[in-house]
Computed example of a mutant assay.
Amino acid sequence: METVADSRSDELIDIVCAETGKSRFDARVEVTLALEHLDWAARNAGRVMKDRRVHRRLLGFNQASIVSVGLPRKKP
């Protein structure tokens, strides 16, 4: 499935070239990597952003911690 960003990648490449002075090849690589990263982030956001328990090491063995992303939560 082609996204809006994919369909306008030539425009993004032109912008990168104009703003950074990179060659079209380098700009295409940069745009492609950025789009692939955004695609991965969108597909994995739920797994990556969820709260998870972090086990402490030796000195904090009796303490529990939870790592959380600082985003507003929905009220139950």
Rank of each mutant, 00 (worst) to 15 (best):
V16G: 00
C17D: 00
A18M: 03
A18K: 09
E19T: 11
T20R: 01
K22L: 12
K22N: 02
K22W: 07
K22D: 07
K22G: 06
S23T: 12
S23F: 05
S23N: 04
F25M: 06
F25K: 12
D26N: 11
D26S: 08
A27T: 01
A27L: 11
R28W: 08
R28C: 04
R28V: 01
V29Q: 14
V29N: 08
V29L: 14
V29H: 09
V29P: 03
E30N: 00
E30R: 00
E30M: 02
E30I: 04
V31S: 08
V31T: 06
V31I: 10
V31A: 08
T32Y: 09
T32I: 04
L33V: 12
L33S: 10
L33I: 11
L33T: 10
A34C: 12
A34W: 02
A34L: 07
A34Y: 01
A34Q: 01
A34E: 05
L35F: 03
L35K: 10
H37Y: 15
H37T: 14
L38I: 04
L38N: 13
L38P: 02
L38T: 08
D39K: 06
D39Y: 03
W40P: 12
W40Q: 14
W40A: 11
W40E: 10
A41H: 07
A41Q: 14
A41C: 13
A41K: 13
A41P: 07
A41L: 14
A41S: 10
A42N: 07
A42Q: 06
A42E: 08
A42P: 01
A42S: 10
R43H: 06
R43A: 11
A45N: 09
G46V: 06
G46I: 03
G46N: 11
R47E: 07
R47D: 03
V48Y: 11
V48G: 06
V48K: 02
V48M: 08
M49K: 12
M49R: 07
M49S: 09
M49T: 13
M49Y: 15
K50N: 14
D51T: 15
R52S: 04
R53I: 14
R53M: 13
V54W: 15
H55L: 06
R56N: 12
R57A: 03
R57I: 02
R57S: 07
L58F: 06
L59A: 10
G60A: 10
G60W: 04
G60L: 08
F61D: 05
F61M: 07
F61T: 05
F61V: 04
N62C: 11
Q63K: 00
Q63L: 09
A64S: 09
S65T: 13
S65H: 13
S65K: 12
I66Q: 13
V67N: 05
V67L: 09
S68A: 14
S68G: 07
S68L: 13
S68R: 15
